[in-house]
Design a protein around this nucleic acid. Structure first.
Lengths: 166, 166
DNA sequence: TCGGTCTCCGACTAATTCAGTCGGATATAC
DNA sequence: GTATATCCGACTGAATTAGTCGGAGACCGA
């Protein structure tokens, strides 16, 4: 459904918290987990991945924790998604280089889909954590559809005349 | 991983084939399934959904089959995804109206994520089946990253320094 | 009118992915 | 040395997705 996993949600949430810390401060995984009501062990695992991707830096020992490894404006949403979920792929084909769908030699849609995928990725790579928090104060550079902020997803895309849930 | 399901892949593939049919022609589900090496019953099911969403029109009886219910240039990728996968949601929060994550009252990321989601959806709603096929001849209006056509996904986003697969 | 071919539909099972848990290792401040 | 922190892999259960099965109704041609 073109959606991010819960893990990524959690990760972004934690990162957005780290963004607000002052220089030198760190927040422990448990602290963050309690703050946002996320299972402690799960968030710990997510933070480990972010650490491995050098998005956060870990400080061991008591009074340790995590802090951003570089300024929030240098951390893109795309890199966060990639760190937590692994290599993103828009279609099944684009995961490998297409050798596994050799049955579909007549696959005419791979190329256009790859383009779309790239465009989405580029968009996500232009949005940083810094902009994420700015949007609290209703200024957000990526806004295109004003109705997007509405909670009801059904009405987000007026294009969808008919929907069926499985 | 921000990816489309296989069903959607199959659906787009079938639709791209229907696009090439002449006026009055129809292709049966089985015909399409054999053509693209897709399980017959599965594709039949996908076509049914597309029919329900009025993207294709079904013709019963022998010598029947499916054809597009309107010109390819009036069928957006977004509507196809929506028809096959149901209401798209970028995050878990945006699926319902947020009542189920009331634990996350401090959720500061919902709004910016909703914006990103809307932007992706808008992009997909601007691309039609017609453009899908034009791209065979290397002219494609949505191109932004030229390297996107490369098969190797690892190099698509140079931003991703570190990736880990689960 | 009868049989074959088609769409149509829902329910079912299998396979895969995702969320969350557990146990144990290492690092460090007090 | 001990308590608290990260770290890491392996495991289980839940949820989603892929694919299957069986049967009903529509339609064309003989």
């Amino acid at each position: 459904m073109l959606s991010l996993s819960k893990k990524t949600d959690y990760g972004l949430l934690a990162l957005s918290h780290l963004t607000k810390l002052k220089e030198g401060e760190a927040a422990s995984a448990r602290e963050l987990a309690i703050e946002f009501a996320i299972p402690t062990e799960l968030l710990a695992k997510i933070m480990q991945r972010l650490a491995r991707a050098d998005i956060v830096r870990s400080i061991s020992g008591p009074s340790g924790g995590y802090r951003l490894s570089r300024p929030a404006k240098e951390i893109s949403i795309a890199s966060v998604i990639s760190a937590i979920e692994g290599t993103p792929a828009f279609t099944q084909c684009t995961k490998s280089d297409g050798t596994d769908c050799d049955q579909l030699t007549r696959c005419t849609i791979r190329k256009p889909l790859a383009h779309i995928h790239a465009k989405i990725l580029q968009m996500l790579s232009l949005i940083t954590l810094a902009e994420f928090d700015e949007s609290d104060s209703t200024t957000y550079p990526v806004v295109l559809m004003s109705q997007a902020a509405k909670p009801r997803t059904t009405t987000v895309m007026p294009l969808y005349g008919h929907k069926n849930e499985d």
